[in-house]
Design a protein around this nucleic acid. Structure first.
Lengths: 345, 345
DNA sequence: CCAAAAATGAGGTACGCACCTCATAAAACG
DNA sequence: CGTTTTATGAGGTGCGTACCTCATTTTTGG
């Protein structure tokens, strides 16, 4: 038989079309008994709402919002590009995306932005931000207004966000660890870890995953304390030079965050290019070039195109209260080396 | 302004709705001058047909078909599962997928199957098969009937297939090569390559890519002639034992095709488990287990879930004559190691 | 038991498009 | 020029759903 329609449900449940409509769209004024009668008919016939027709009738344009940190480096820029492209493609599907910014590290400004949004006609929001108490309250406020919120890139488990789109930093760190061990090979050695800051959750979790694998599978390798660069190339170079002076058995460098260009320059100046196994995170134009140039051996990343499309799909699903295809929305931890770099983008 | 509709086009072009409809749907009986007037109006207003509404009105159900080899091992089974799942999810989008089989290696049987399909009401077909002259003609016949055909997993460039969904075997081989070189590390050594058969295009291309990288980047490593197993575990074990007897510096094993279980068993019997860097292709339940058990170090693969969803989307796009989102449909060459294995699938 | 409240039914319109018919206008033809 | 072709217009119906109004039935409470 063809797909059942609302009329079939009405007949099956022995009620009128209007009642079926009331039940399906959560409109008030239906006895509990009637509601369940309709729901049973839906279950019996296996009715699935035709979203194409529903959206056509609704004439609804989903106003989605993505909130990103301002000036937080190339990764966020790349993400923003991906989101814009995904939004372009989704325009056919009645989904508009507005991208807003907040001053990085200023969670109060972010909270204010979200409070603004909560007052507007927004169908859903995706937020990329570190987890803070202020943010948690802001997200709660949005959700209480009925606006679905999903966490982007880094999770916000303490809030009741509807979904998290991104990869598990801990597992990404483990992946980097296993790769490092394999690339460095047998025999003793030391690994330098470099991060802009160890305050951020992602960096902490990556490092934890990395250490776990190193300790368990490559005990002959010693991971030195993380060098913090605070986003400064100069500081990176100083710290690295200093460390290399005292550590004589360094065989690998693990870049937990940004700093690929500074690292490549520093190694070149020291005449050490190609001497260490270098592993980093996040595929951006910088790291892409570094892979091609041989300055990095591998990048552990997530596909931002996928992430962006997934974000929009999930926002829509939440707005529609439609189930999510978990397999499709699962972001994989990708390993990128020179040879499996996808062309362009 | 909101999206223009057919009515806007009619007004803009100064013609009636009926004429716009005739033009948009290639119906006869319109003067060439009028046709171009409508087309210009479409271009001016940037009209894009609302496919959701169009399909609703058409009451159209896309009958898609996937044609796969019968009994060709776990990879095809995994692919089939992925296709079925994708089809389930796509059922909401008026897309049905029928999966047909043909006896592996029998391209005449395949051609007969396709000829049958060409007579039926099929909106599109995805074919996984090695390229043969018979197949080429069969595909041509389908296309001349107006049925879009896309090549699955392995490309059919000599046919005029509408699209190829899969990864570049040559690049996949290069990726495996670079990984092998890195895993084995510096110093001389030998690499054993094993394939069910070197007749198949994919195996040939993988081997070529693998060799290129080995020669260019790891000249100290010697890749020995490919051992052919013809799908037999016994033969694999014999050939491997024989080879290991004569090659004393083996440090890595490259599995171009199937045979993961047989290899693991053979190595275990010889007491050599864990002694070589082992790299294979295609993530299946077997290779997944082998990765977890440490019998394989890395798998170069494509995401079959993505491949399946992509296949359906592209079939629909071809049937609708709608443009394709290249970025979304690009299949990446994935590297999977123990740590970035996605849970279950 | 009756009035008020709640629940339900009947029916319509709209969304953007496909597809159909029939009348009429315009062009082509002999 | 009239006649046949060919183009075009006008208008309708239906796809599956949302959302609205108003009449009617059923239930509830005093």
């Amino acid at each position: 038989m063809a797909r059942p329609t609302v009329n079939d449900i009405a007949r099956e449940a022995g009620v009128s079309l209007a009642t079926v409509d009331r039940v399906l769209n959560d409109r008030p004024g239906v006895k509990a008994k009637t509601v369940s009668a309709v729901q049973e008919a839906v279950a019996r016939l296996g009715y699935v709402r035709d979203m194409a027709a529903a959206n056509l009738a609704r004439q609804r344009h989903y106003q989605m919002v993505a909130v990103l940190p301002q000036g937080a480096g190339q990764f966020v820029e790349t993400l923003e590009t991906a989101l814009r492209e995904a939004a372009q493609a989704a325009a056919t599907a009645r989904t508009d995306l507005r991208i807003l910014h907040y001053p990085a590290e200023d969670s109060h400004a972010l909270a204010a932005r979200l409070a603004q949004l909560a007052e507007q006609d927004v169908a859903g929001a995706a937020v990329m931000a570190p987890e803070t108490p202020v943010l948690r309250d802001a997200v709660k406020a949005m959700k209480s207004k009925g606006i679905p919120v999903i966490a982007l890139v880094s999770d916000l488990p303490s809030t009741d966000r509807d979904h998290f789109v991104g990869i598990d930093s801990h597992a990404a760190g483990r992946t980097a660890g296993l790769l490092m061990g394999r690339f460095v090979g047998p025999g003793p050695g030391q690994i330098i870890a470099i991060a802009p800051s160890m305050q951020l959750r992602d960096a902490i979790e990556r490092r934890r995953g990395f250490d776990e694998v190193m300790l368990a599978d490559f005990p002959q390798l010693e991971v030195l304390p993380t060098l913090e660069t605070h986003g400064s190339g100069v500081q990176l170079r100083q710290a690295l030079t200093e460390r290399l002076r005292h550590a004589s058995q360094v065989r690998g460098i693990y870049l937990l965050g940004s700093g690929h260009r500074a690292l490549a320059a520093a190694l070149a100046d020291l005449g050490l290019t190609g001497r260490f196994a270098v592993i980093g995170h996040e595929l951006t134009p910088h790291t892409r070039r570094a892979l091609l140039a041989g300055h990095i051996d591998a990048v552990v990343t997530q596909n931002l195109g996928h992430l962006a499309r997934s974000t929009l799909r999930i926002l829509r699903a939440k707005a529609d209260r439609t189930p999510i295809d978990a397999a499709q929305e699962l972001l994989r931890i990708e390993i990128v080396i020179r040879e499996n770099l996808s062309p362009e983008q």
